[in-house]
Protein backbone atom coordinates (compact mmCIF):
# COMPACT_ATOMS: atom_id res chain seq x y z
CA UNK A 1 0.00 0.00 0.00
CA UNK A 2 2.56 2.57 1.20
CA UNK A 3 6.16 1.92 0.27
CA UNK A 4 8.98 4.14 1.44
CA UNK A 5 12.50 3.67 0.03
CA UNK A 6 15.59 5.43 1.28
CA UNK A 7 13.90 8.69 2.28
CA UNK A 8 16.42 11.40 3.16
CA UNK A 9 15.94 15.02 4.09
CA UNK A 10 18.50 17.60 5.15
CA UNK A 11 17.81 20.91 6.91
CA UNK A 12 20.89 23.05 6.36
CA UNK A 13 23.71 20.84 7.69
CA UNK A 14 21.47 18.69 9.89
CA UNK A 15 20.31 15.33 8.59
CA UNK A 16 16.64 15.21 9.70
CA UNK A 17 15.79 11.92 8.01
CA UNK A 18 18.44 9.49 6.81
CA UNK A 19 17.73 6.61 4.45
CA UNK A 20 14.40 5.50 5.95
CA UNK A 21 12.58 2.59 4.29
CA UNK A 22 9.42 0.73 5.31
CA UNK A 23 6.17 -0.66 3.95
CA UNK A 24 2.64 -0.41 5.30
CA UNK A 25 0.07 -2.88 4.03
CA UNK A 26 -3.64 -2.32 3.47
CA UNK A 27 -5.51 -2.21 6.81
CA UNK A 28 -2.25 -1.88 8.71
CA UNK A 29 -1.26 0.85 11.20
CA UNK A 30 2.40 1.68 11.59
CA UNK A 31 3.30 3.82 14.60
CA UNK A 32 6.49 5.89 14.32
CA UNK A 33 7.92 6.56 17.77
CA UNK A 34 10.98 8.39 18.99
CA UNK A 35 12.16 11.53 20.78
CA UNK A 36 11.31 14.93 19.42
CA UNK A 37 13.74 15.72 16.62
CA UNK A 38 14.14 12.06 15.70
CA UNK A 39 12.63 12.72 12.24
CA UNK A 40 9.27 10.98 12.59
CA UNK A 41 7.12 14.01 11.63
CA UNK A 42 9.38 14.89 8.70
CA UNK A 43 9.14 11.28 7.49
CA UNK A 44 5.34 11.46 7.71
CA UNK A 45 5.16 14.77 5.83
CA UNK A 46 7.28 13.41 2.99
CA UNK A 47 4.58 10.82 2.33
CA UNK A 48 2.00 13.48 1.34
CA UNK A 49 4.69 15.89 0.13
CA UNK A 50 4.15 18.60 2.71
CA UNK A 51 7.93 18.20 2.85
CA UNK A 52 9.89 17.27 -0.29
CA UNK A 53 12.61 14.62 0.18
CA UNK A 54 16.20 15.23 -0.91
CA UNK A 55 16.49 11.60 -1.87
CA UNK A 56 14.37 8.44 -1.82
CA UNK A 57 10.98 7.53 -3.15
CA UNK A 58 7.44 7.08 -1.84
CA UNK A 59 4.84 5.02 -3.68
CA UNK A 60 1.20 4.65 -2.72
CA UNK A 61 -0.82 1.87 -4.30
CA UNK A 62 2.07 1.43 -6.73
CA UNK A 63 2.17 5.06 -7.90
CA UNK A 64 5.22 7.27 -7.26
CA UNK A 65 3.90 10.30 -5.34
CA UNK A 66 6.48 12.52 -7.05
CA UNK A 67 4.63 11.95 -10.32
CA UNK A 68 1.40 13.51 -8.99
CA UNK A 69 0.42 17.13 -8.42
CA UNK A 70 0.98 17.61 -4.67
CA UNK A 71 -2.55 18.95 -4.09
CA UNK A 72 -4.14 16.13 -6.08
CA UNK A 73 -2.07 13.65 -4.05
CA UNK A 74 -3.15 15.18 -0.74
CA UNK A 75 -6.84 15.03 -1.64
CA UNK A 76 -6.54 11.23 -1.65
CA UNK A 77 -4.76 11.03 1.71
CA UNK A 78 -6.35 11.72 5.10
CA UNK A 79 -4.17 14.00 7.23
CA UNK A 80 -4.70 14.66 10.96
CA UNK A 81 -2.32 16.60 13.19
CA UNK A 82 -2.16 17.72 16.78
CA UNK A 83 -3.13 21.37 16.14
CA UNK A 84 -6.14 20.02 14.18
CA UNK A 85 -6.35 23.16 12.01
CA UNK A 86 -10.10 23.38 11.63
CA UNK A 87 -11.03 26.41 9.51
CA UNK A 88 -12.32 28.86 12.15
CA UNK A 89 -14.51 30.82 9.71
CA UNK A 90 -16.46 27.71 8.65
CA UNK A 91 -19.05 25.65 10.48
CA UNK A 92 -18.41 21.98 11.26
CA UNK A 93 -20.43 20.99 8.18
CA UNK A 94 -18.48 23.45 5.99
CA UNK A 95 -15.18 22.12 7.36
CA UNK A 96 -16.20 18.56 6.51
CA UNK A 97 -17.35 19.68 3.05
CA UNK A 98 -13.99 21.25 2.11
CA UNK A 99 -12.20 18.10 0.85
CA UNK A 100 -15.37 17.04 -0.99
CA UNK A 101 -15.80 20.45 -2.60
CA UNK A 102 -12.19 20.24 -3.80
CA UNK A 103 -13.06 16.96 -5.50
CA UNK A 104 -16.02 18.63 -7.20
CA UNK A 105 -18.81 16.75 -5.45
CA UNK A 106 -22.40 17.97 -5.86
CA UNK A 107 -24.20 19.83 -3.06
CA UNK A 108 -26.60 16.93 -2.32
CA UNK A 109 -23.85 14.35 -2.25
CA UNK A 110 -21.79 16.50 0.09
CA UNK A 111 -24.73 17.05 2.47
CA UNK A 112 -25.41 13.30 2.66
CA UNK A 113 -21.73 12.54 3.24
CA UNK A 114 -21.46 15.17 6.01
CA UNK A 115 -24.34 13.52 7.91
CA UNK A 116 -22.64 10.14 7.46
CA UNK A 117 -19.29 11.49 8.70
CA UNK A 118 -20.79 13.00 11.85
CA UNK A 119 -22.33 9.61 12.67
CA UNK A 120 -19.04 7.86 11.84
CA UNK A 121 -17.09 9.86 14.44
CA UNK A 122 -19.99 9.75 16.91
CA UNK A 123 -20.86 13.45 16.87
CA UNK A 124 -24.41 14.77 17.35
CA UNK A 125 -25.96 15.98 14.06
CA UNK A 126 -26.78 19.28 15.82
CA UNK A 127 -23.05 20.18 15.85
CA UNK A 128 -23.07 20.56 12.07
CA UNK A 129 -23.99 24.26 12.21
CA UNK A 130 -21.61 25.15 15.04
CA UNK A 131 -18.29 26.91 14.56
CA UNK A 132 -15.08 25.17 15.77
CA UNK A 133 -14.62 27.74 18.55
CA UNK A 134 -17.84 26.43 20.13
CA UNK A 135 -16.63 22.80 20.37
CA UNK A 136 -14.68 20.98 23.08
CA UNK A 137 -11.18 19.73 22.31
CA UNK A 138 -12.38 16.15 21.85
CA UNK A 139 -15.19 17.25 19.54
CA UNK A 140 -12.75 19.34 17.53
CA UNK A 141 -10.39 16.40 17.02
CA UNK A 142 -13.29 14.13 16.03
CA UNK A 143 -14.19 16.74 13.40
CA UNK A 144 -10.52 16.74 12.36
CA UNK A 145 -10.59 12.96 11.93
CA UNK A 146 -13.92 13.15 10.10
CA UNK A 147 -12.53 15.78 7.72
CA UNK A 148 -9.54 13.53 6.99
CA UNK A 149 -11.91 10.63 6.30
CA UNK A 150 -14.36 12.71 4.21
CA UNK A 151 -13.15 11.64 0.79
CA UNK A 152 -12.92 7.95 1.85
CA UNK A 153 -9.13 7.77 1.53
CA UNK A 154 -7.30 4.45 1.64
CA UNK A 155 -4.35 6.06 3.38
CA UNK A 156 -4.28 8.10 6.59
CA UNK A 157 -1.38 10.08 8.05
CA UNK A 158 -1.68 11.09 11.70
CA UNK A 159 0.81 13.33 13.52
CA UNK A 160 0.30 13.05 17.29
CA UNK A 161 -3.41 13.51 16.66
CA UNK A 162 -4.56 12.99 20.25
CA UNK A 163 -1.61 14.60 22.05
CA UNK A 164 -3.49 17.67 23.24
CA UNK A 165 -6.58 15.93 24.62
CA UNK A 166 -7.34 15.29 28.28
CA UNK A 167 -6.92 11.60 29.36
CA UNK A 168 -10.61 10.61 29.38
CA UNK A 169 -11.40 12.21 26.05
CA UNK A 170 -8.18 10.85 24.66
CA UNK A 171 -9.07 7.32 25.65
CA UNK A 172 -12.53 7.61 24.06
CA UNK A 173 -11.25 9.13 20.82
CA UNK A 174 -8.42 6.59 20.58
CA UNK A 175 -10.79 3.65 20.90
CA UNK A 176 -13.27 5.13 18.50
CA UNK A 177 -10.44 5.73 15.97
CA UNK A 178 -9.10 2.21 16.43
CA UNK A 179 -12.52 0.75 15.60
CA UNK A 180 -12.95 3.03 12.61
CA UNK A 181 -9.65 2.35 10.88
CA UNK A 182 -10.08 -1.43 11.28
CA UNK A 183 -13.63 -1.21 9.91
CA UNK A 184 -12.53 0.96 6.98
CA UNK A 185 -9.36 -1.05 6.33
CA UNK A 186 -7.11 2.01 6.25
CA UNK A 187 -3.39 1.93 5.78
CA UNK A 188 -2.13 4.40 8.35
CA UNK A 189 1.11 5.96 9.56
CA UNK A 190 0.75 7.29 13.09
CA UNK A 191 3.38 9.52 14.70
CA UNK A 192 3.45 9.55 18.51
CA UNK A 193 5.93 9.85 21.35
CA UNK A 194 3.57 7.98 23.71
CA UNK A 195 4.65 4.33 23.80
CA UNK A 196 1.41 3.14 25.48
CA UNK A 197 -0.60 4.69 22.65
CA UNK A 198 1.71 3.10 20.07
CA UNK A 199 1.42 -0.36 21.68
CA UNK A 200 -2.37 -0.13 21.93
CA UNK A 201 -3.12 1.16 18.43
CA UNK A 202 -0.33 -0.11 16.21
CA UNK A 203 0.07 -3.33 14.25
CA UNK A 204 3.74 -2.53 13.92
CA UNK A 205 6.00 0.04 15.54
CA UNK A 206 8.97 1.80 13.95
CA UNK A 207 11.47 3.30 16.38
CA UNK A 208 13.33 6.37 15.10
CA UNK A 209 16.45 8.00 16.50
CA UNK A 210 18.46 10.88 15.03
CA UNK A 211 16.75 10.56 11.64
CA UNK A 212 17.25 6.79 11.33
CA UNK A 213 14.74 3.99 11.64
CA UNK A 214 16.55 1.79 14.20
CA UNK A 215 14.02 -1.04 14.44
CA UNK A 216 10.62 -1.96 13.03
CA UNK A 217 8.33 -4.82 14.02
CA UNK A 218 5.20 -5.84 15.93
CA UNK A 219 5.07 -4.70 19.57
CA UNK A 220 5.70 -8.29 20.64
CA UNK A 221 8.73 -8.65 18.34
CA UNK A 222 10.23 -5.43 19.62
CA UNK A 223 9.66 -6.49 23.22
CA UNK A 224 11.13 -9.93 22.63
CA UNK A 225 14.18 -8.93 20.59
CA UNK A 226 15.06 -5.24 20.94
CA UNK A 227 18.12 -4.25 18.89
CA UNK A 228 19.60 -2.24 21.75
CA UNK A 229 19.04 -1.10 25.33
CA UNK A 230 17.25 2.07 24.31
CA UNK A 231 14.59 0.17 22.36
CA UNK A 232 14.27 -2.29 25.25
CA UNK A 233 13.73 0.54 27.73
CA UNK A 234 11.25 2.20 25.38
CA UNK A 235 9.16 -0.97 25.08
CA UNK A 236 9.35 -1.58 28.78
CA UNK A 237 7.91 1.87 29.64
CA UNK A 238 4.20 1.05 29.19
CA UNK A 239 4.58 -2.20 31.05
CA UNK A 240 6.38 -0.54 33.93
CA UNK A 241 3.77 2.21 34.07
CA UNK A 242 0.94 -0.33 33.97
CA UNK A 243 2.49 -2.30 36.83
CA UNK A 244 2.96 0.84 38.88
CA UNK A 245 -0.59 1.98 38.23
CA UNK A 246 -1.99 -1.49 39.15
CA UNK A 247 0.04 -1.60 42.36
CA UNK A 248 -1.06 1.82 43.50
CA UNK A 249 -4.71 1.31 42.67
CA UNK A 250 -4.89 -2.23 44.07
CA UNK A 251 -2.60 -1.36 47.01
CA UNK A 252 -4.96 -2.40 49.88
CA UNK A 253 -5.90 -5.87 48.67
Amino acid sequence: MIEVHGLTRRYAERLAVADVSFQVGAGELLALVGDSGSGKTTTLKMINRLVEPDAGRVTIEGRDVASLDPHVLRRSIGYVFQAIGLFPHMTVAQNLAVPLGLLGWSRERIDARVTELLALVELAPGLATRFPAGLSGGEQQRVGVARALAASPHVMLLDEPFGALDPLTRDRVQRSFDGLRRRLGLAAVFVTHDMAEAVMLADRIGVMRAGRLVQIGTPAELARAPVDDDVARLLDTPRRQARLVAERLGGGT
Binding site: V72, F87, R147
Partner: peptide
Protein backbone atom coordinates in the same frame (compact mmCIF):
# COMPACT_ATOMS: atom_id res chain seq x y z
CA UNK B 1 -2.83 33.66 10.21
CA UNK B 2 -2.64 30.54 12.40
CA UNK B 3 0.03 28.23 10.88
CA UNK B 4 -2.10 25.20 11.85
CA UNK B 5 -4.95 26.43 9.67
CA UNK B 6 -2.59 26.97 6.76
CA UNK B 7 -1.12 23.48 7.22
CA UNK B 8 -4.64 22.04 7.25
CA UNK B 9 -5.41 23.92 4.05
CA UNK B 10 -2.36 22.35 2.38
CA UNK B 11 -3.12 19.00 4.01
CA UNK B 12 -6.61 18.71 2.53
CA UNK B 13 -5.16 19.40 -0.91
CA UNK B 14 -5.91 23.05 -1.67
CA UNK B 15 -3.94 24.68 -4.47
CA UNK B 16 -2.27 28.00 -3.60
CA UNK B 17 -5.11 29.98 -5.18
CA UNK B 18 -7.77 27.91 -3.41
CA UNK B 19 -5.92 28.49 -0.17
CA UNK B 20 -5.99 32.23 -0.80
CA UNK B 21 -9.67 32.32 -1.77
CA UNK B 22 -11.12 29.85 0.74
CA UNK B 23 -8.91 30.36 3.77
CA UNK B 24 -6.38 33.21 3.74
CA UNK B 25 -8.50 36.08 2.44
CA UNK B 26 -11.63 35.24 4.47
CA UNK B 27 -9.56 34.98 7.64
Amino acid sequence: LDPAVLEAARGVGMTPSQRLRLVELPL
